[in-house]
Amino acid sequence: MRPDAGTPMIELDNVSKSFGDAVAVDGISLNVPAGSLCVLVGTSGCGKSTTLRMINRLIEHTGGEIRIDGHQIRRFNEVTLRRRIGYAIQNTGLFPHWTVARNIGVVPRLLKWDKARTRERVESLMALLGLDVEAFAGKYPHQLSGGQAQRVGVARALAADPDILLMDEPFGALDPITRSSLQAELLRIQSRIRKTIVFVTHDMDEALRLADQIVVMQAGRIIQQGTPSEILAHPSDDFVETLVGGRDRGLKRASLTPVGEMMESLPDDGRVPAVHVLQTDSMRLAVSLMLWHGVSQLAVVDDTGETVGMLPLRRLVDDFGE
């Protein structure tokens, strides 16, 4: 059912949700292209979770239209719909009385896959998420660390190979180092499996790092959407500017820009700077290396170690800023 790249997998068309008199989501429109990762970001209570949960009908929208793959979600049976959409939440929601393997295999079981196929799937997902099958398959959720439990939660969401994955602050409860490694893992997995992901967070750094498309929400409305670099470069108002870090923006932007985009060719005299940086490293890291080593230029190498260019400090001043 995967449509061509670029066609929206998820479309929200002027969607609203009121709880009684209170309007939680107020006429938002949003397209998420197939295979892209869309991050909803905003302060607490702005309607991110409500928006996410309307997509799998945990909450019914009260206005507008939501379409998945061109079909209105109201047309689907809600239970059938949810089995086709992965769902992972902050405190994992793992079933405490089931083992890791059984937790991951629950949706395949709902879909009546045979035992062997489910088992195979569970084991390959555990491998994908870096969970040793021998060590973890038989463990119960209370025997896992927060990071391990979250991996299991993501594996469970992916189990039936859904096209869509909804994630509500999945890494919100983790320490910064674990969170960062799970973010890297999500990016790695996403580059392989190319799901359509809607990801909720209130952490702008997380949004900038993960998103193809960032949707900034405030009081139930979308106040800006765009790619991370668009949002960084042109925050639409003071609120978004504060969210993206105000005067810290330079470093945030540097952390999104790969060195390869800014490097220059080697000088003719063939002299190579002593300190080197990878082509795929971020400009932020490059700046950090210059500060640390007290140098004004770096050699840029590719992943085989071959020098492919150089990066002088001047580039930062001349071309990086606005």
Binding site: V79, R82, Y87, A157
Partner: peptide, 17 residues
Amino acid sequence: DRGVLESARGIGLSPWQ
């Protein structure tokens, strides 16, 4: 736990299940 119930619904368990 409410999170457990929410995820049960969210991954597609019917009310009976």
